[in-house]
Nucleic acid binder design. Structure first.
Lengths: 336, 336
DNA sequence: AACACTAATTTGAACGCTCAAATGGAACGC
DNA sequence: GCGTTCCATTTGAGCGTTCAAATTAGTGTT
């Protein structure tokens, strides 16, 4: 009954060729005479032979594994990242790669994880998310000459690596333009505290759109930590001002939901009395009918993998890094 | 400058012992004399030696990799599963395992993925989620004698494998009891169409609680596909009946959000005029203040890994399967 | 017919590790 | 003092693949 798993040797004997020829049929078919190739392929199909990755990895040093870190549990932190992860997994699979997951709290821990993964699992590449100013992770990876892409621009430094990002300013501009077209005169921006690349970028989109249309911005921007509570407070503060805004463009869905909550608590109907827009097109946004800016995660994942494959094909040779900036899409719902 | 990555051989020479002794220091320290052990450990620390997983895998057949399938992208499908995945990744890491991801549309595709992963990557085990009646995945895995656990009971059959699940009936009972304690007389249940193990189980919790407290159930249960729209419709239908309910216990947050939307659209304030509860404690539930039943994902992940480690330690020997049923927790918010 | 040259295939070694068996000592009993 | 037992360590082989070099077959040139 035994039925051992077939190996190269097994297949080779059955097809009356050598190991290497079988290997060539799979990895370099052009080296094998068509007649031989077909004979070998038949045996492979019949026996169901499949190469053992561990042996390939040991010999070649490539594992066909790409690692991605996810933020520690507890803080859900990233519905967006989860959607990205799904897309990445799916597309990596189609290209013959698999995604290996790891968690890490802060950047230092993440670098430690990189180190251990590289050493142990012969990882081919890394996908780094949530880049920020002075990111020690990209510096480390660059120094180690490990192929990697980031989902997020290298804020504050010039790009020394490939990256893919979504144009937040453009997305917020689209949302603001939509409100302007709807006739709003005083459009507020509920943003994060200054200093975060992502946050500042998004705010600039609002400023650009307002200035281009001759709408005021002075006194209409607020800064609040991400969270329903702080979003609500920021909204309340602006509503209490002498000249309250009639629309709120928010840097995130979380803050937008805070604004949304404050509005309904005051008996105002979002989208009718006052408009609100969010960012990320989260499930919660869809649930309450919040207009939001959607990031094209599938495209981001695709671009990331394309960039990685380029790096892997170059086998460490220096080449121009990919820089991909994708445009988000405004999803209209009842709130604006 | 070379500085080759250290191998067993390198370390062995530096410590003036043989390869195998170094290997033993790491894998079976009790076999090595303390003096030797320390000497070797010092060299390991100094050189930063770390074993190459590919070589270990090739030799031992174990990869220290656990695979988990995630539903295809497009449908977000599972905020809960994402939270579970985070917890699983984190805890697997602490136990020396890593999580390998893959996507698969239907069960057939998932089985195909199992097959390919097993063959190629020498996977140690699988985590199967979202079990349902007549689940072909567990049957296949069982036949192949691959270690695996499911997050979800084997609905409709007796357990032929280890599983971990959350007691949905218990969670819904808690929600219903809470509403009864608050004085509600007519409590409706917005459920899924019959036939799904999970849905039927949750509904039974509502029935039990109502019957135990002498509350009516007749005409108070509705069935709707999961979705905001269908939840809203189901809620509207019951509100339009001759004796409308004053509280809605929902099988999912999605449906609860539908009910919630319908209530606010009618000018009713959830938690004041009519009560609503959901299930899964999603971000959206937190956002709008929906009382919901929270699944203890971290505990589920822990129990899954414990079960797997038992199976792996048994090395294929038959043993009693783990069956873990955890209690969820009711998270009270403004809606009930 | 001897030679050069390319195309197709094979051979031996190596990747880094662990298993199974072998070796060398020290301690013990009689 | 000689076998027996036990502990610590070493040796040789092999996991399944691919690389690099060697061999053989095939084709054409003078």
């Amino acid at each position: 009954m035994g039925q051992q798993r077939p190996t190269l040797e097994t297949v080779a004997r059955a097809a009356e060729v050598s190991r290497q020829t079988v290997s060539n049929v799979l990895n370099a078919p052009h080296l094998v005479r068509p007649a031989t190739r077909e004979r070998v392929q038949a045996v492979i199909a019949r026996t169901g032979y499949r190469p053992v990755k561990a042996a390939q990895t040991l010999r070649t040093g490539r594992s066909h594994l790409i690692a991605m870190g996810i933020p520690n549990p507890g803080e859900g932190a990233g519905e967006l990242l989860d959607r990205f992860l799904h897309a990445l997994t799916d597309q990596a699979q189609q290209r013959g790669y698999r995604i290996l997951l790891f968690t890490a709290g802060d950047d230092t821990a993440e670098v430690a994880a990189y180190d251990s993964l590289l050493g142990e699992y012969n990882l081919d590449a890394f996908v780094v998310t949530s880049t920020h100013t002075a990111d020690s992770r990209t510096t480390w990876l660059g120094r180690q000459r490990v192929p990697f892409v980031t989902f997020g621009r290298p804020w504050g430094t010039i790009a020394r690596h490939s990256w893919v990002d979504v144009d937040g300013a453009c997305g917020i501009r689209a949302a603001t333009d939509h409100l302007i077209a709807a006739g709003h005169q005083r459009i507020a921006f509920l943003g994060w505290p200054g200093g975060s690349g992502v946050g500042d970028d998004r705010r600039s989109g609002w400023e650009q759109a307002c200035q281009a249309a001759g709408r005021p911005v002075a006194g209409l921007a607020s800064q609040a930590e991400d969270g329903i509570g702080s979003g609500r407070a920021a909204c309340a503060a602006l509503l209490g001002s002498p000249l309250p805004p009639t629309a709120f463009v928010c840097v995130s869905d979380t803050i937008a939901l805070g604004a949304w909550t404050e509005l309904t608590a005051r008996g105002l109907v979002p989208g009718k009395d006052v408009a609100v827009t969010g960012f990320d097109n989260s499930a919660a946004a869809a649930a309450v009918g919040l207009t939001s800016v959607a990031q094209p995660v599938a495209e981001v994942a695709g671009a990331c993998l394309a960039a990685l494959q380029k790096l892997l094909a170059a086998r460490g040779a220096r080449l121009r890094h990919d820089r991909v900036l994708l445009e988000p899409r405004l999803v209209l719902r009842s709130s604006a």
